[in-house]
């Protein structure tokens, strides 16, 4: 370690991270009228979550195949209308079972 204070690092990261989070909420209070911006913001959540899910789910497990099967079964479960918690549990169980069989 250098002569930097760990706690100062932490305070800086807390300040910067939360500033990024609240900045848009302070600046934008009303409804955005621009059609492109509205459409863009409509797609953002789905795109960002999809990008973060795949292929990352393959690296999260010990064997990529377990992640892949969890992905497929998770998609099917969500497609048939299961909620956040059941889909999550299904994915976890699938990985547990797959790795139990394959490892």
């Amino acid at each position: 370690m250098t002569n930097h204070y760990t706690f100062l690092y932490i305070l800086i990261s807390i300040a910067v991270t939360n500033l990024i989070r609240v900045l848009p909420l302070t600046l934008i209070r009303g409804e955005i009228k621009n059609k492109f911006v509205r459409s863009f913001l409509y797609y953002v959540p789905y795109v960002t979550l999809a990008v973060m899910t795949f292929p990352a789910i393959l690296d999260a497990t010990q064997i990529p195949m377990a992640g892949a099967i969890a992905l497929v079964l998770g998609i099917i479960a969500a497609y048939f209308g299961l909620g956040l918690f059941p889909v999550s549990v299904i994915c976890c169980l699938v990985v547990l079972i797959c790795e139990f069989i394959m490892l």
Partner: peptide, 14 residues
């Protein structure tokens, strides 16, 4: 390993 896919399962449900 199993717990780490909980997040992704949730993303899928969204």
């Amino acid at each position: 390993s199993a717990l780490s896919v909980a997040l992704y399962g949730m993303f899928l449900a969204i």
